[in-house]
Structure formats: C-alpha cells, structure tokens
Design a protein around this nucleic acid. Structure first.
Lengths: 199, 199, 199, 199
DNA sequence: CATGAATGAGTTTTCATTCAT
DNA sequence: TATGAATGAAAACTCATTCAT
C-alpha cells in the first residue's frame, strides 16, 4: 500500500509553490517546471494531482479565495451588531495579510487572467459576489434597501480600490490607514444611531 | 492635416492589434505572431518598430495611459472651479470608454503584469501618481492639506475600485452610476461652500 | 470447471482491456495507464504480469492469433475431405467474429507495428505461415505440388485481402460474401472431381 | 524578400524524411524531432509548413497515394482494351516500387492508424475506392454488371492481399510472381474473347 | 521598409517504469 | 499480490527572435 495522506500534503505543497512562483516571476513566467522545482517534486506530479496546469491554478485561486472567506466568516461570527458586521468584512478584506506582497501580487496576477479563463472566472466570481453580499446584508439592517445596495457597492469598491492601489504602489502598504479610510466612509454614510457610542 | 508617416501608421496598427489581441485571448496568449497576423504584417516587423515584444507592450500601455491622460487634461482645462476640477478627473477616469471591454480588459491584463516588468511598471506609475496628484491639487483648494491628501487617496481608490469591480463583473457596466457614486462621496466629504449652488 | 487462478484471471483482464483500448483509441494512443484504468487495476500491475508494455502487447497479439488458430483447428478436425479442409481454413479466417470491428481493428493495428518489433514479429509469423501451410496441405491432396503452392499463396492472399478491405471499409462487413468469393475462387481452380457433388 | 520556392522544397524534404523515419523506426516511434533531424531542419519548421504532426502525416499519406494514382493513370492512358486496362491497374498496384520496403512498410504503418484518424481516413478511402472503381469500369466492358462488381472486389482483394503478405513476409518479395497470380485469376474468370489472342 | 523562413529554447503534457508500502 | 505515488525522459507544440533577401 502506498503512503497515505500524501494527497493533501502534496496539493498544499504545490499550491504554496505556485503562489511563491507567481509572486516572484509573475503569472506569465510561472512555468510548471519552476513550480515543481520549488515544491521539490517532478513536473509530472502536477498531472497526478491537478490534471493540468489550469487545474493547479484554479486550486491556487480557490485557496486564496477560501482563506479570505474563512477570515471573514470567523470575524462575522463574532460580530454583535450590524455595524460590527460591516467592520468585520472590512477588516477581513484589508487585514495586513492581504497586503502581504506574497499574497497580494498573486491575487493581482489572477485578476489579469480571470477574464480569459472560465474556470478561474468562476472562482473569482465567488469572491466578488461574497464581498458585496456580506456588506449589503449588514447595511440592510441600518438603512433602506436601495441605499443599502448603493452603499454596499461603494464600500466594496472602496475596499478593492484601496487594496489595489496599495498593491500597485511601490511604497509599503499600510493596512491600518486603509481600514481607517473605510471607517470614515462608513461614518459619513450611516445614521448616527447605527454607529457605536462615542464614535 | 499632416500626412502620417509610415512609421506612425505602422506603430498605431501594431498597438491596436495588440490591444485587440490581448482583449480576445488574454495577456498570456497574446503572441507576436497572432498580433502581427491581426495587424496584417509579418512578425519580423515588430522588431523593426519596437525592438522586441516588451517594447510593443510598453508602447501599448503607454498609449492607453496617454489616452486617459489626454482626456483628463482636456476636461481639466475647461474646469472653472476646484469642484469642477474634481469632477473632471472623476469623469475622465470613469467615462464610458474606460468601461468599454476592449480597453478595460487590457488595462486589467497589464495590471497583472506590471509588478514583474520594470518597463511596464514605470508607465503604470505615471498613471497612478497622476490620478492622485490631480485630485490632491483640487482638494487642497477646498480643505486642509492633510484632509486633502486623505480625500485624494480615498477618491482615487473609489474610482479605481468602481472601475475594477465593473470590469471584473459579468454584468454590463454603468459608467453613469459609477460617477454618481463618486459624486455622492464628494458631496459627503466636502464643505457645502465647495459644492455648486443647488447641489 | 477448474477455478481460475488469480494469475490467469488478471492476465485475461489485462489482455481484454488492451484489445478494447487499442480498438477505441488506436495503437499509438493506447497507454498503459488507460489500459490499466479500463481493466480496473493499477498501472503498476502490468509489470507484475507482463514485465513491460511490450510483454502485454505480445501476449495480446498471441491471444488473437491463438483464438484464430483454435477456430481453424476445430474446423479442420471435423473436415472429412481435402475440399472440406480448405473450406475449414477459409471459414475460420473469415468467420463473422474476425470481421467484428473490436477484433479486426486490433489485428490491423498490430500489423502496422509488427515490422518494427521483433517480439510481435515472431507471433505474427506464426499466423502467416500457418494459414498458407494449412492451405497447401489440403491443396496437395487435390493438385500437383507446384500448383498447390501457387494456389495456397493465392488463396491466402485472397483471404487476407478480403478481410483487409472489409476492415478498412466504412461499410459494414459481410462475412458471407467474403467466403462466397473464396469459394468461387476455389471452384474455378480445382478439378471438378475435387468438388463436392452438385457444386 | 525571402527565398522563393522554399515551400515546395521543404515540404518534399519533410515528407521524404517522414517516409524514411517511419520505415526505419515505425509509426509509433517516428517523432517530429527524428523526422526533422533527418530532414536537416529544426523541429519547429514542421509547424510552419504542416501546422502540426497530423498535417505532416496526412501530407505523407497523400503523397504515397498520389504517386500510386499517377502510376495507374499513366498506365491506363496507354491501355488499348478493357483487358489492358485491367492489367494496367494490376501492374500499377503491384509494380516493384510498391514492394520496395521503404514504401511498403510505410503504407502498412498508415493502414494501422487510418481507423483512428479521420484525416488519414479520408485520404485512405480515396485509394481504396479508386482501386475498385478502376477495376469495375474495366470489368463492365467484359462481363455483366453484377459479375463485374464481384470480380472487381475479388481482384482488388487479391491485389491488396498479395501485396500485404509480401510486405509482412520476411522473404524478399517478387512482384512478377504476384502479378502472374492476378493474371491467372483474370484468365480464369474472363470470357475467352476478352483475353488477348494466344493467351 | 518589409517579408516570411528558420531557429532553438521553452512550455505543457504524457507516459513507461519503478518502488515503498 | 496489488497499489498508486513518483520519477524523469520524451513528446508535440509554441514562440520570440534573427536574418537573408
């Protein structure tokens, strides 16, 4: 009998190697050989676990997306008020790890590819929809439905835009500042009663 | 009207073909042969005008960036007040042509590559800096310097985020709505005196 | 009925899977992995029973050849006259099962390989020699030796040619017609005394 | 301006190299690299002229088929009677060059592949139909239509079978003997009036 | 100025085989 | 016996680049 539990281990190894490789050389230059070399396995093994390169890329994007989703879910579970739910979403999407260049550059690389790969597209849409839907649900408890929809879209755009500009910038990113910007936006657009006391 | 030299004509042809090709097959699949075929010239010609593939890509990104810059400059020249200058920047960056998929998908593809190509990087930074600096200049006439800096960053992020989400979305983009969102943001963050009468 | 040992069972499984696979995807695309998958075993098992791929292919061709040989032997055992012996050979080689595409396409695929694999070659030669030698023996009882040799070669060629053209044709094969053609040939080339009464 | 007339030359070179390579190592082992090496060009050039490997193989089979077809056409043009037309077809298909191992083994290799490649199939069918249709036309001038059809099929099978057995055999092939066998078959199945005087 | 032939490295993918379990 | 993980070589194919014409 062959070694057990290899599958999970190998899949992780390869996904991590994919992230590292894309981070270092970019999407277009991330060859299977370079990824396999970094993972310390032979290139043929990719086929064994992911069928082909696109399978590996899809799994990698899925990993990034689910890491982000879990962060948000964890924070949402602890939120006691609609406002805290909003903050939970903001903080999950703008937490320091999301500004970590290793992760951020890979997200960005995928965004450039997503429009041309149906499989990646599907994964990306989950992220996109989830962000705005989380926000909209929270807003609905605080303002009228149409206003909630507008605010959700605007907040999502602000979050993504802050993240994007920070990632594209040469200067080191400041997650705190980004979150403060979104908080200011929320405070300017929510009724006072919705805000925490003393805010 | 001056007759265009062969050089200018060919360069345009190839840049347009590059945009079309990246739009259709994505950055990773845009080969010089496919670009040349679409431009109706031989692949060898690219070397003549752009030295190599990266030269053509750089020129293409430069084209996109300068088209956008000219739109902003034109609008800024007609702006009569700081508020109108803000609107000018917003409108230039969110005008319908920027939501046109042919252009938008190519911008996005470049963003994914920019971090891994110094030459593309340099071009991209011009766009990034220009947007926030245009905004900051206008804000400075209306609010204190540190608030102007904050607002400029937030507005730039909102603009980029709205554009990004619209481009990544499957639903048709609505430039008007995006601009209205930014206007609402401005109205909520500027002193009443800065806004046009009756707004 | 003797219980089949595991070995015999597995070997049969794998040979049948080889036939099915070559039939469906052709010789060049019949990989060990696809064969093993179809047989429901792991690819490593092939080495156990056949040492390597060529061993499996050789065993498969041997199987095809011996099936055909047994059919001929059975019919020959029941033949009461030289003419009936001729018919037995003809009928064995042109019986409907030999026109069955599953078998026929695999025979054909092997013929294309036989010249380049000594091991396959050896198996193939058994078939080739057996056919003509069976025919020659029967003819010798009916005509002079040199005529018997000529007739045996011609009959063998006619049999193989009819089978080949039927297999390569798109139209459904008709075993009866093929056999009638050979019978007509025999009747035209044998002395009347050799033929059954009333033929 | 690039060199002219390269296309025809290169295509020939590559087709000849394909024939030689298949002849020597078999269909399954004829890699593009080995073919290109033999042709003295780089492997990438195959794509330039034939798009992909199947394109080269198809062109090669087409070449074999058309060489054979031209031989038949030339002989048919000189045939003065239906009987001579029959002989023309027989001789074209069984002329010594068709028994040349370099050509014969390649034909055989293709036959093994033809059932699994639609493109090769189409080319092969031209050969198959042409042979029997040439024969049938000639037979129709000599015997009744249904008998002509039967004889054409049988003669075609005899031709292919003789060629096949000679090609598969280890012994050196004798084209003359093969043709004599077919002639005997014709003589045995045609009315005396159809045969040349003194035959 | 422009072609397109040609290269050769590089990419993904496939595969027979080996081997620890 | 049997598995399936893993390898490493080889396959087809793609592509940026060069160059003679």
């Amino acid at each position: 009998m062959p070694k057990l539990g290899m599958e999970t281990l190998r899949r992780r190894q390869l996904i991590e190697a994919t992230i590292d490789t894309i981070h270092e050389v970019g999407f277009a230059n991330a060859s299977l050989q370079s990824i396999a070399r970094r993972a310390g396995v032979s290139p043929g093994l990719v086929a064994h676990y992911f069928r082909d390169k696109e399978g590996l890329l899809e799994a990698t994007l899925r990993q990034l997306s689910s890491d982000l989703g879990h962060g948000a879910a964890r924070r949402l579970a602890q939120a006691a008020s609609p406002y805290e739910r909003l903050l939970a979403v903001v903080e999950a999407n703008l937490e320091p790890s999301q500004f970590d260049r290793r992760i951020a550059t890979v997200w960005l690389a995928f965004w450039g590819q997503v429009l041309h790969s149906p499989r990646l597209r599907r994964v990306q849409m989950v992220y996109e929809k989830r962000l705005v839907s989380n926000l909209r649900h929270a807003f609905r408890r605080l303002v009228a439905d149409d206003e909630a929809a507008r605010l959700a879209e605007a907040t999502a755009a602000l979050i993504d835009g802050l993240w994007l500009r920070a990632t594209l910038s040469v200067e080191p990113s400041d997650a705190d500042e980004a979150r403060a910007t979104v908080r200011r936006f929320l405070h300017g657009n929510l009724p006072a009663a919705a805000l925490p006391h003393g805010a």
